[in-house]
């Protein structure tokens, strides 16, 4: 069980958070303009990276805020945490 530093509350046990999967998948502004393929790409297709992943977490048993985490999925080491809308502190 890792520790996540919530950008609003500080260091907390992972069990207080829920994962929202890959980050920076922006919901299309005009979904109706998309082909079925393009929509499926947004809806279902994931990089599912082994290595450094940019992902979303929610402090669901805390402040309920969503934020971003940079985590290495091959060893669960967290490299950075940043708020929604902020630029990643590590290059993607």
């Amino acid at each position: 069980m890792f520790i996540i530093i919530c950008p609003y509350c500080g260091e907390r046990d992972q069990t207080e958070f829920s994962s929202g999967g890959e980050a920076h998948i922006v919901r299309p502004k005009q979904p109706t303009e998309l082909s079925d393929d393009e929509w499926a790409e947004f809806l279902f297709m994931r990089k599912n990276i082994k290595g450094i992943q940019f992902e979303r977490w929610n402090h669901s048993h805390g402040c309920r805020k969503w934020f971003n985490v940079v985590r290495d999925t091959s060893n669960d080491k967290i490299h950075a945490v940043y708020k929604m809308g902020e630029k990643p502190p590590i290059n993607k």
Binding site: G21, A40, E41, F44, M45, R46, K47, N48, I49, K50, T73
Partner: peptide, 18 residues
């Protein structure tokens, strides 16, 4: 569990999470 890793090698994305 490594399907996506291999898919990425072929330039594909899959609807999977490991």
């Amino acid at each position: 569990g490594h399907s996506s890793v291999l898919a990425n090698m072929a330039g594909l994305k899959l609807p999977l999470e490991s």
